[in-house]
Simulated assay, not measured.
Amino acid sequence: MGILGWIILGLIAGAIAKAIMPGRDPGGIIITMLLGIVGAIIGGFVGRAIFGSDINSFFDLSTWLLAILGSLIVLGVYRLVTGNRARA
């Protein structure tokens, strides 16, 4: 799967991660979509390193789960880092 596939997968995974983890994000929808793309790419790399398999199929369930998990982690870290500044 090329970079365009990872971007599309990341946009969708970011939206799903936002639905799973509701609440106010300091950055808005654009930042959430970018975090979804980063999370999907990181999830793909980590999944490839841990499981040793080629995660290149857009329609594979493991690819989606890793992308959503990566997006959740990146979104959670982003909220921890910027959450205090948004309230101040």
Rank of each mutant, 00 (worst) to 15 (best):
M1K: 00
M1G: 00
I3N: 06
I3H: 07
I3D: 05
I3Y: 09
I3E: 05
I3Q: 05
L4P: 08
L4F: 12
G5R: 07
G5P: 07
G5F: 08
W6I: 04
W6D: 02
I7E: 02
I7D: 00
I8C: 09
L9E: 04
G10Q: 02
G10W: 00
L11K: 08
L11W: 08
L11S: 08
G14W: 02
G14S: 06
A15F: 10
A17S: 12
K18R: 15
K18G: 12
A19H: 08
I20C: 12
P22M: 06
G23T: 07
R24L: 10
R24V: 10
D25C: 12
D25H: 15
P26L: 10
P26T: 11
G27W: 05
G27K: 06
G27I: 05
G27D: 01
G28Y: 07
G28S: 08
G28V: 08
I29Y: 15
I29D: 15
I29M: 15
I29F: 15
I30T: 14
I31H: 13
T32L: 11
M33D: 09
M33E: 09
M33V: 10
M33T: 11
L34H: 04
L34T: 08
L35C: 06
L35H: 03
L35K: 07
G36I: 03
G36A: 04
I37M: 08
V38K: 03
V38W: 05
V38D: 01
A40Q: 07
A40E: 05
I41K: 03
I41S: 02
I42N: 00
I42R: 01
G43L: 03
G43W: 00
G44A: 02
G44L: 02
G44T: 01
G44N: 00
G44R: 01
F45H: 13
F45P: 09
V46D: 03
G47S: 02
G47T: 00
G47F: 00
R48D: 05
R48L: 07
R48S: 09
A49Y: 11
I50F: 08
F51K: 03
F51E: 01
F51M: 07
G52L: 06
G52V: 06
G52I: 05
G52K: 10
S53K: 14
D54G: 13
D54H: 12
I55D: 03
N56P: 03
S57N: 14
F58W: 14
F58D: 13
D60A: 14
L61S: 09
T63I: 02
W64A: 05
W64D: 01
W64K: 04
W64V: 05
L65G: 09
L66H: 02
A67D: 04
A67T: 05
I68K: 02
L69A: 13
G70C: 07
G70I: 06
G70P: 04
G70K: 05
S71Q: 11
L72G: 01
L72T: 02
V74R: 06
V74M: 09
L75D: 15
L75A: 15
L75Q: 15
G76V: 06
V77Y: 10
V77D: 04
V77S: 04
Y78H: 14
Y78P: 04
R79S: 07
R79H: 10
R79Y: 10
L80T: 12
L80K: 13
L80G: 14
V81P: 06
T82H: 13
T82P: 02
G83E: 02
G83M: 04
R85F: 12
R85E: 08
A86R: 13
A86D: 12
A86M: 14
R87H: 14
A88V: 15
A88T: 13
A88L: 15
